[in-house]
Structures are given as structure tokens and as C-alpha cells.
Nucleic acid binder design. Sequence first.
DNA 1: GTCTATAAGACGATAGAC
DNA 2: GTCTATCGTCTTATAGAC
Lengths: 192, 192
Amino acid sequence: MSQRGPYAKGVAKREEILGRALEIVARQGYRGASVQVIADAVGLSQAGLLHYFGSKEELFTAILRKRDELDHLSRAAPSDPRDARDAFVQVIAHNSEVPGLVELFSRLAVEAADPEHPAHAYFLERGEVLRETIVATLAQLRRPPALPPETLARIVQAAADGLQLQWLLDPTVDMAATMEALLNALAQEGHP
Amino acid sequence: MSQRGPYAKGVAKREEILGRALEIVARQGYRGASVQVIADAVGLSQAGLLHYFGSKEELFTAILRKRDELDHLSRAAPSDPRDARDAFVQVIAHNSEVPGLVELFSRLAVEAADPEHPAHAYFLERGEVLRETIVATLAQLRRPPALPPETLARIVQAAADGLQLQWLLDPTVDMAATMEALLNALAQEGHP
DNA sequence: GTCTATAAGACGATAGAC
DNA sequence: GTCTATCGTCTTATAGAC
């Protein structure tokens, strides 16, 4: 059904390109990556690549969306709070393997401040979904928390993003361990 | 003494330029600010401006250093933990008034991941000083904390940086209030 | 759908006059 | 110390052939 229709082939090819572009950025890093570099890496000309993605910004936004998809981040989190926590920490641990994606994410997070940027909506939506997941997970823990759940969720999200900046600067920083420590402290906390 | 010597005038002028450049970026925002734009704003030609700063990257790094200086961030924090907390929160609150500086900081934080970048050392040093200050302040609170002080300091720093990204994306986010909530929760926490 | 070719511009940096 | 002028590079985007 969804594989038929006039665009099926184009969409499939687009996904294939996206997958390879993702690997390239993840492995070789995002060194101010240009459309040309990605095009070479996926075996297309620059114009050929931009045929599938309207512009550079849309291309990189699509890469980030694809990454979330592969990270299962668009799915609902596990219902058991500890499983949800572990899944979150594992995504962060995996990020250490893909510095180029972390750099791309951080860079676009700044550029997407402009409401006209194609990634603006992406970051807004992603943040909301992430925080909602955190709130839902927190709701299953001991109550009442010391802070409003929405505030806690913002802090956890901020910590995750900020740890990426620290890790980019100094790769000896252990993002996953630090986040796990924070989440464990949050899980144990609350007024008796 | 330090105002004499062959470089005194050049240094003074450099500082003057820096102060104006800081205002420009703070007020008009960093919109992919180029050397040209800053030069126009401070009333110099592009080459004239680069005479004082060797390169674009050094110029922007100097702006960030100047900002820290004006924020009294290079000084020792107040000895009373509550005063230290308030000072920290006030710096964050003030950041809401200077979006261009927040954007510049966040952007350079990513670019400075490259050890060759002129801002690399700046961000490393700034992070260390900030975390040491946080650790010293935490040491004056109830003990023992639920987490190692160094870990807590990393989390607080990460939260501050991450909140900036959230705020750039959505200016209705209250960075100062969120950070204050986090710090208050940390101050009250600990094993009885 | 994919290419070549090129437009069209921005930018940082430097040379050299004054 | 400050300028003008220019170089050289890199970039995205598009036009048009196949």
C-alpha cells in the first residue's frame, strides 16, 4: 500500500541516501560538512543530492530525524520506569560512538533558534516529546517530587544537551554515567 | 605602571573596541555575525578591526572573555553559599537581555570542540573554574550530598548550557527560574 | 533522476599605500 | 594604525543537457 504510488521509488531512494549520509556523518564526523562532502560520500553529485532534499538545511534536518528514528526515540518509552531510564541512558552512551552526529545536533540546535530554519519545528517537537516522556516516567516514581515534573523534565533535557557540549570539548567526560547518576538521584529523591 | 609602555595605547583601544563590539552583539544579536558587520558597528574597516584581533575566531573569543569579565565571572564567588547561588542566578537572568551573546556562546561552544580553535582553551578553563566554584559552594552546604560534588557541578553546568539552547529555541523558557529551582533542590537535598 | 557547468555571493585574510 | 583594494576560497543553488 504505502509502497505503491508514483513516489514510492523516490522515497525509497531518499531513505537509502539518508541512511548512508547518516553513517558518513556519524563516522567521519561533521567537520562543517558541506553538501558536496555528503554528496561525494553517498556517490552522487551535489545537484543530485539536492534533488532529494531541497536545501542543505533540510538535508541535515532530515539526518537528525532519521537518527531519532533509528534510536527508537520516536516510539513510546518502555512503561517500566527503570527500563525507560536504561533506554535513555543507552541512547546517550551510544552517542559517544557517533561524535559527528552529536556535533551536528548541537550545531543545528543553535541555528534552529531562527523560526525560519527548517530544523526549528523539529527541535520544538523533539523537546516536547522528550519532556513528556520524562514527565510520564517520573509520574510512576515515588511522589511527590521536590520540583514540578515539567521543571524536572526541562532540567534533564538541559543536562543531556549540556553534557554533549562538555563531551565535545573534552571526550573524557562520561555523558552516560553522569546522566545515570542524575536520574538515579531523581528517582530516589522526594519528600518522605 | 601597567598603563605605560609601547602597547598601552593599543591595548586601551582594543578594550574600547571590545566593549562596543560586545554591546553590538548583545543588542543586535549574533546573526551569523561577520567581521564586516562588527567592523561597521564599531566604526572601523574590516582590516582595521582585524589589526587588533588576528582573526575572526580570536575576535569572538575575546568578546566572550570580555563578557565574563563584565559578569564578574572571573572573580571568586561570594563565600556565603546563598549569595553565590544568587549571583549565579542573576548572571543567568541577565542573559535573557543579551540573546546575541547567548547565541555566540552556544555556537562557539560547539566550534571550540576542535582543539585548534582559539576558543578551545577558553571553554576548558571557564568550565573548570565554574565547576570548581560550584564544588566549593556545595561543600558549604549540608553533607553528604547524594552525588559526588564533581558530578553535581557537571550537571549544574550542563543544565545551564542546555537551558540556553532551550531558551534560544523558545524564549518563553525561564532559564533563571529553572536554574534556581534546581539549585534550591540541591541545597535541600542530602541524606539525613 | 542524474549529471555538468556555472551562477552568484559571502567571507576571511593580506598586501601595500598613507 | 588605519585605510582601500583585492585575492582566493568556499559555499549553495540553479539552469539545462541527457
